[in-house]
Simulated assay, not measured.
Amino acid sequence: MLRVIPAVPTMRVDACSVAAPGQPDNEDQTLQYGDLVAVLDGATAPAGFDTGCRHGPAWYVRRLTARLTLAAATAPADPLAALLAEAVRAVRGDHDGDCDLGHPGTPSSTVCLLRRTSGHLDYLVLCDSPLIVDVAGQVGVVADDRLAATMDRLWQREPPATDTRQEADYRRAVQWQRQHTNTPDGYWVAAADPAAADRALCGTLPLTGPGRVRRAALLTDGATRVVDLFGLLDWPGLLDLLANAGPAELIRRVRAAETDGAVSLTTVPRHKRHDDATAVFCLFDGG
């Protein structure tokens, strides 16, 4: 007797990653290995702050991406959190003992992972690189807002000197952030402790049936600016733009907004005029 095997929905992937203008290195990275896709965003080391490490964030995020790929090749069925923990553990060894990995400023990265299985999508979101999903025509956001919540709580205790948050406020924010990195009362990010992977937001979504995922986007915060900072699109509009024009057009619009007088540093306060920007768009057919 012939056994009918259900068709596995196909996954088409389009990605674009662009460094901030004037910066020599892109501290964002994308990954596509088989059915696994990801975006990672290395935390910029602020000028004048020690990290305890001779390597920079671009080195760290490239190493973490490579180690994630190797972990997925070695154990493709392992939970995403286990793959990330193994990758973080492996990068610890890549430092060759030359760095103080207990330093609060040790290089770190956000992580957003998506993996297609026979009938489902597994996801992992750690820190502020969100996943946007279209489930049966309804757009939702999987976002890890613990960093933003931590900083908002601290700013409420000690408000900034001005609405534009000057250099002194920025340095104070960096110090606060470091004090609350990978702590129960703060936020979690991929750095030197593999245990942070267990604190990621993880879940599974259907790829078949009427409630299936049709589209998804993995974004760094340099790309989400078009929605959550500049307000030029909403999340459904962002998915539509990615579907119709692609990730490169999304980033082009971000760059245009960053230089537009209407969203100057005064009218839209931010610590960096430009940021590395990365978007991965996934389209699922069938099911």
Results as ranks from 00 to 15, higher is better:
T69N: 15
A148M: 15
R172N: 04
G48Y: 03
H120V: 08
A85F: 10
W155A: 04
A161F: 07
G119R: 01
G140H: 12
G56T: 14
H120A: 12
W155Q: 13
G137T: 07
R172C: 12
A136K: 05
R62S: 14
C53H: 01
V125N: 14
D134S: 11
G140Q: 14
P57F: 03
A161I: 09
P46L: 08
L68Q: 05
E86P: 06
L84G: 09
C53R: 01
R67T: 11
Q138I: 09
H55R: 10
L64V: 15
W59K: 05
A71E: 02
S118N: 15
Q156H: 07
S129T: 04
L80S: 02
V133N: 07
E158P: 07
R171P: 12
L101P: 07
V125A: 06
Y60C: 03
A73S: 05
L68N: 07
D50C: 06
R116Y: 03
E158H: 10
L121M: 00
T74L: 05
R116E: 14
V88K: 02
P79Q: 03
P130E: 00
S109R: 12
D134E: 13
S108A: 12
V61W: 01
C112Y: 06
G97L: 11
P107H: 03
A73H: 06
D169V: 12
T44P: 04
R178G: 05
T51N: 02
Q179E: 14
R67P: 06
R92E: 10
A90S: 15
L113M: 07
Q138W: 10
R92V: 06
I132S: 06
R171S: 04
G102E: 14
E86G: 14
V174M: 10
Q175L: 12
R171C: 09
Y170I: 12
C127V: 04
Q175V: 13
D144M: 04
T162F: 03
T150C: 15
G97I: 10
L113T: 09
H103L: 03
Q175G: 11
V88C: 03
V135L: 05
V141P: 01
L121S: 08
D94F: 05
A47V: 13
T65S: 08
L80A: 04
V61F: 00
W59A: 01
G48A: 04
T164A: 05
V111T: 09
Q179A: 09
L154C: 05
L154K: 06
V142Q: 14
V133R: 09
L64C: 07
A85I: 07
G105W: 01
P130Q: 08
D96W: 14
T44D: 00
E86M: 10
D144F: 01
V111L: 11
C112K: 14
T150I: 13
S129L: 02
T65M: 06
P160G: 14
W155I: 08
Q156T: 14
A149R: 15
L68Y: 08
T65P: 11
H120K: 15
V111R: 15
T65A: 08
L101T: 01
T106Q: 11
V141E: 03
P130W: 13
A90M: 04
